[in-house]
Write a protein that binds this DNA or RNA. Structure first.
Lengths: 239, 239
DNA sequence: TAGTGGTCTAGACCACGAA
DNA sequence: TCGTGGTCTAGACCACTAA
């Protein structure tokens, strides 16, 4: 929603036009016509440049497309690269029931790897949260998430959120940038027991550094049963 | 390059201003000031709206950023998600010497999996190109690439390109969209022999469907030695 | 021919930042 | 105080599309 209309007290005309058009075409099929520029000039009693400023924004964000000599139309949605998702979001997308069992959650001193990933000094305090993840009731993954406590005051004492990403989102700290590494390996004895496989079974390891701006908010290491999990991703933009 | 100046015969003013500014700030450090809008109005003898249209384009493409009350400046380059790279590009990025040995290249009838990936009918002709990939002389990967011959006339009879992606780029068919899957597995006997490991060694499997627009130009399946390869990727935009 | 978006003019007032 | 970008006006002519 555009809150400039409320919070500012003084509505910007191009914002008013933009949000009017956005609401008008919401849910309309690609190719549906939007109002013509001169029609909007009449309706809002503004200059045409103001209407164009409003429509420019909607064209830039991919909602509308202009065809010279014909008009302005609802654009076909662009393909989008793989979003940065949480385990529960990913499982929901696959149509599976995601469950999590907390194995450990406590304040720890950062080891060398975690400290480097956070740009902290070894020994600095971090929150360590280890969970066993299930899909449709079957063990699928062990995730060790590390969090920078400075960015998440009261996190340890609050009720554990259902979804880490939901909690981060509520704090405005949901990662918008992720640096991932993926490798194949065999399970350790401890991992094998939790995942209910024999030791030395093949697993997929996935590490992530999640950032918001320049701040590292999440460092995680996950190990998946290779017989139950294939990672998917889409790269590129548009089509 | 902006060719509207030449091909159109009649130069668009906002294009002239845009390209003038682009050339002016080329190579300048982030934070360097660009000319002010009123300065460009003077220099080109155009209206301010025309200058703003020119600068809007450069701001949208991420070259400039505006700071109200201060001016317009060269923007800090945005972080970019993992590009769709070829094996040789990826190895070069890692500072390793990439080599390829063609094991097989021929026309084949598409099997069910490849046909589905290409949106073809099973049995349709495809080009199959199998290569053993080395990094710094050591076997790293076996790649089976399948190509749609309809899109690549004469491909089989031409000299084999050093890089498949270079050849595709020359034909305007370098993928701009990729759908990948990654899984952990063990090597087959044949794979183990080529990769110079014992059978049942852990490997990373990577499949890709590469598209340009709606056209599938490449379907590939790669198998990497897990002890020598970790996949990296970056997701998201900006920072 | 009528309507559309693309381009362009020559001004204007505003809020904000720096000096 | 002065310069900056942000917003806005009330027109104009053009090329193009569709009827």
């Amino acid at each position: 929603m555009e809150d400039a209309l409320i919070s500012d007290g003084r509505a910007l005309k191009h914002v008013a036009v933009r949000e009017y058009v956005r609401g008008l075409v919401a849910g309309h099929a690609p190719g549906s016509p939007a109002p013509s520029e001169r029609e909007l000039v009449q309706r809002f009693g503004v200059a045409r440049m103001t209407v164009r400023q409003a429509l420019d924004a909607l064209v830039t964000e991919g909602l509308l497309e202009r065809i010279p000599g014909r008009g302005t139309f609802v654009a076909r949605p662009r393909r989008i690269a793989t979003p940065i998702t949480s385990y529960s979001e990913e499982m929901t997308r696959r149509g599976m029931l995601a469950e999590s069992q907390t194995l450990l959650v406590r304040r720890e001193h950062a080891g060398p790897g975690v400290a480097r990933a956070f740009n902290l000094t070894e020994g600095d305090a971090v929150v360590h949260w280890r969970r066993l993840r299930r899909a449709d009731g079957q063990p699928l993954c062990i995730e060790d998430a590390y969090l920078n406590e400075v960015l998440l005051p009261g996190f340890l004492h609050a009720a554990m959120p259902t979804s880490l990403y939901d909690d981060l989102a509520a704090r405005g700290l949901r990662p918008t940038w992720a640096e991932d590494s993926i490798s194949a390996d065999v399970a350790t004895e401890e991992e094998a027991e939790l995942l209910e496989v024999v030791p030395a079974t093949v697993v997929l390891r996935h590490s992530r550094r999640g950032l918001v701006g320049d701040r590292v908010v999440e460092v995680s290491r996950s190990v998946y049963r290779a017989d139950r999990y294939t990672m998917w991703m889409q790269l590129g933009t548009d089509d």
